[in-house]
Amino acid sequence: MKHLIIFAHPNGQGSFNRSILDRVKSTSEKRAVETQVRDLYQLNFNPVISWNELQGANQGITPEEIRYEHQLIREADLITLVYPLWWMGFPAILKGYLDRVLSHGFAYKTENGQSVGLLQGKKMQQFITIGSNVEKYQQFGIDKSLRDCLVDGLFNFCGIKDIQHKFFGDIHIIDDNARQKMLEEVEQITSQNLTALLSTQENLNSKESV
C-alpha cells in the first residue's frame, strides 16, 4: 500500500503544518506503509501552467516532471494534503500544483459531452490550518463553502469520493497543549484511514488466494 503526502507551507521546518506532516508520516511508517512526501516549497515546484502545457494536455503531451507526479498519485491508495488556508483558498504553490497535475486525460476525461473523473478508488484526507476560529466559520457557513469548493467539489470531479478533512483553528493563539491534542487527532484520523485501507487490501488478497 502507498501513501502520498503533499505538503504546502513556506516554513518547512518550524511551522505547525510541519508538525502535522511529521505526525502523518510517522503514523504511516509505523504501519510499514510506503510513504512519499512532496514538499512543494522544498521542491521549488513551478506552479505556473503555460498555455503550451495546457494545450498539450489535450493532446496527451505532458512534461516529464508532471508525469512523475501523475505516477505518484496513480499509485497512491491514500493521499494526504497538509496546508494553511490563505484568503479562503490553497496557498498559490498548491493551487498551481493542482492546476498542472490534475490535467485532462489524467484526472478526468470528457465522454459523451460529460466530464468523468479518473481517480476513483482512492482515499483522501486533508489537514487545514486557519488563523481564525473554526466555530465562527461554521456559524457563517464558511466551512461548508470551503468543503464544497476546496475539498469535495474539486476532488469529487476527479473521481475521489472518499474524502475527510479537518480544520484546525486559532493556530496563532493556542498553547502547546492544544497543539498536542490536534496532533493526536491527526494521528487518530490517519490511523483509522490506514487501518481501513489495509483491511480492504487484506480482504482482497484473501479472496484472490482462494
Rank of each mutant, 00 (worst) to 15 (best):
V134H: 03
V134Y: 05
E135A: 09
E135T: 06
Y137R: 03
Y137L: 02
Y137H: 03
Q138M: 05
Q138Y: 06
Q138D: 01
Q139H: 11
F140I: 02
F140A: 08
F140T: 01
G141Q: 05
G141E: 07
I142H: 03
I142G: 01
D143Q: 02
D143A: 04
D143I: 02
D143E: 07
K144R: 07
S145W: 14
S145T: 15
S145G: 15
L146S: 07
R147I: 08
R147P: 00
D148E: 12
D148Y: 10
C149T: 11
C149W: 05
L150D: 08
L150G: 03
V151N: 07
D152G: 13
D152E: 12
D152H: 12
D152I: 14
D152K: 08
G153T: 09
L154T: 12
L154M: 10
F155Q: 01
N156I: 05
F157W: 06
F157P: 02
F157C: 02
C158P: 01
C158T: 10
C158K: 08
C158R: 11
C158G: 05
G159C: 08
G159A: 11
G159M: 13
G159K: 13
I160E: 07
I160N: 06
K161T: 11
K161W: 11
D162M: 10
D162T: 08
I163P: 01
I163W: 05
I163V: 08
Q164W: 15
H165V: 01
H165C: 06
H165L: 03
H165G: 09
H165F: 14
K166E: 15
K166M: 15
F167Q: 06
F167K: 13
F168P: 12
F168H: 07
G169M: 03
G169V: 04
G169L: 03
G169Q: 05
G169W: 00
D170N: 09
I171R: 05
I171S: 08
H172R: 14
I173P: 12
I173S: 15
